[in-house]
Simulated assay, not measured.
Amino acid sequence: MKHIVPALLLIATAACGFQPVYAPVDGKYAESGMISVSPIDGRQGHMLRRALQQELAVGVPGLTEKVTLSVTLGSNLSRLALRPDGAASRSSIVANGSYRLEGENTRVTGRSNVEAGFLVPDSPYGDIAAQTDAGDRAMRVLAKQIADDIRLKFAGS
């Protein structure tokens, strides 16, 4: 009886057309709209890709063909202010992204930079959490800047 219930649930799920959200589709990742965002390495790259997908989901006015957005991401952690004991009290994450939007008749490139600062807590685990949060904030702002830059380039053409 214990094995029958999971088997029935599995059959019912398969029959309804269930597919995991992040499952590859024909060897590629699912596209949304006219712009497909290529995977970006690392945790911050994943956060940037998700933020770009959200920013560009509404589309770009003037874009009439399917295109692929590729981003090269770089980031650096800097300790800015030091306490009398030599420990950092303020830090900053500087992220830069170079992007290329390519399609059949479209070639657009650009670069954007962003900085997100944070206070360093006394706890080492708090420092890790603060770094992670600052990195996530930087990726959201970087995605907005890249999306705005793309929209401005298409508005001018």
Rank of each mutant, 00 (worst) to 15 (best):
E31N: 07
V67R: 09
A130Y: 09
N96K: 08
L48M: 02
G45K: 10
R140L: 00
M47W: 12
C16I: 15
P61H: 01
Q19A: 15
E115G: 01
E115T: 05
E31A: 11
A155P: 02
H3L: 02
S78G: 01
R79W: 15
R111S: 01
S112A: 15
A134H: 06
T72H: 06
S92D: 10
D127V: 04
R140A: 07
T109H: 00
G74D: 09
G62Q: 13
M34G: 06
V58M: 08
Q54L: 06
L119N: 11
G33M: 06
A14S: 10
I93K: 02
R107V: 09
L63F: 03
I93Y: 11
L63M: 06
M1W: 06
I128R: 08
P24W: 02
V25Y: 10
A88T: 07
V58L: 09
R43D: 09
S89K: 04
S78D: 12
T13F: 07
D122K: 05
A134S: 08
R83E: 09
E104R: 12
I93S: 03
A88Y: 07
E31H: 04
L142P: 07
R100N: 14
M1S: 05
D41M: 00
A15Q: 12
G103E: 13
I11Y: 04
S70M: 04
L152K: 13
L52A: 12
G110L: 05
P20H: 06
F154Q: 02
Q53I: 13
L82F: 14
K66I: 02
L52N: 10
K144V: 00
V120Y: 07
S91N: 13
T68D: 14
G135E: 00
V37H: 13
R79N: 15
R50C: 00
K66N: 08
R43Y: 11
V58A: 13
E55V: 00
M1E: 04
S36R: 15
L152Y: 14
E102T: 15
I93F: 08
Q145C: 00
L56R: 14
G156N: 11
A95T: 09
S112M: 11
L48Y: 10
L101P: 05
G97C: 12
H3Q: 07
S92N: 15
Y125S: 05
L63P: 03
D133N: 10
R140P: 02
E65R: 06
S112I: 01
R111Y: 02
S123N: 01
D136M: 00
I40L: 03
S78F: 00
V67D: 07
I93L: 05
I40H: 11
V67K: 12
A23I: 12
D136K: 02
F154P: 01
D133Y: 09
K66E: 10
G62F: 10
A7G: 01
L152R: 15
M34S: 15
E31C: 01
S157M: 01
T106C: 07
Q53R: 13
